[in-house]
């Protein structure tokens, strides 16, 4: 292999380039001031209500950014949501409690909250003690979070990030404490547990869209529109692919088989 590029992944490059083009198109349209029709995400809208409820009850908001480190894209997405939640707690004067299980997340979360409180015009409301480090150990972290929920009785729990087996331990503790819970994750195996224990769940793509939705930023909302276009394209490809495979098998037409094989070459890793 003497070239620069690996020819085995050309199709991946084409797919990612197409997705990126659609998202950049959405951002471009947003910048030109085109009317943005962004879908509602019930779970995201519930977060603002939950912060308001916590403020009225005089109880804290608990934010957990999952159990993975900064090298996980879900933690990055979660910190984006934290920024928006931080701006809301700053405006309402509501106490925010954020235990972390990674030192790098601790440092990043403090920086995000400091900027959020400053952006909300309440720099004095931010204290580094809002974010505390607990333990890198998954269950040690979950035990401490359960302890915080039992003692502080937060009125709202936001479980946003990558979770593993501890997801239900934390979510169920929040449910039993009577907190309004909004979870969000891309860990498909933990989704059933979070759906069972939480009031709202941001499932997969919604979780990554939440930060853009909450920020109200034009570019981010534009990228959200681009995301919707990509999803529509994916749905179209699924339908076309299913039709091609079915018709090629049913009719035995050569051109359908060629089209089916071409599509498989494009989409298969």
């Amino acid at each position: 292999m003497t070239g620069w590029w690996d020819p085995a992944v050309w199709n991946l490059g084409v797919i990612i380039a197409a997705m990126a083009a659609a998202i950049l198109w959405g951002i471009h349209r947003a910048r030109r001031g085109s009317l943005l029709r962004v879908r509602r995400i019930a779970g995201v809208e519930a977060m603002a209500d939950a912060v308001g409820r916590a403020t009225e009850l005089g109880r804290p908001v608990l934010y957990v950014a999952g159990v993975t480190d900064l090298d996980d894209v879900q933690t990055i997405a979660s910190l984006g949501i934290l920024g928006a939640v931080g701006r809301q707690t700053a405006r309402h004067g509501c106490r925010l409690v954020m235990p972390t299980d990674r030192s790098l997340v601790l440092a990043a979360a403090r920086e995000v909250l400091r900027e959020s409180y400053t952006a909300a015009g309440r720099p004095d409301g931010y204290t580094p003690d809002m974010v505390t480090y607990i333990s890198d150990d998954q269950f040690g972290f979950a035990a401490r979070v359960d302890g915080i929920i039992a003692r502080d009785r937060p009125a709202a729990c936001f479980l946003q990030g990558a979770f593993y087996a501890e997801s239900l331990l934390v979510a169920e503790a929040g449910a039993q404490a009577g907190a309004v819970q909004v979870a969000g994750t891309a860990m498909s195996h933990q989704l059933p547990f979070l759906v069972a224990a939480c009031d709202h769940v941001l499932i997969g793509e919604e979780f990554f869209a939440a930060e853009a939705y909450l920020s109200g930023d034009r570019d981010k909302l534009g990228s959200l529109r681009g995301q919707d276009v990509v999803k529509d394209l994916a749905l179209g490809l699924v339908l076309i692919g299913a039709a091609l495979v079915t018709l090629a098998a049913a009719t035995g037409a050569g051109w359908l088989a060629v089209a089916r094989d071409g599509m498989l070459r494009l989409l298969q890793p």
């Binding site: 997705m19 997405a77 793509e205 919604e206 853009a212 995301q227 990509v230």
Partner: peptide, 17 residues
């Protein structure tokens, strides 16, 4: 469906970053 959505979401987030 969830996995396709996650892939789209990750791509958009990456581009934003």
């Amino acid at each position: 469906a969830v996995l396709i959505g996650i892939a789209v979401g990750v791509t958009a987030l990456t581009l934003r970053i």
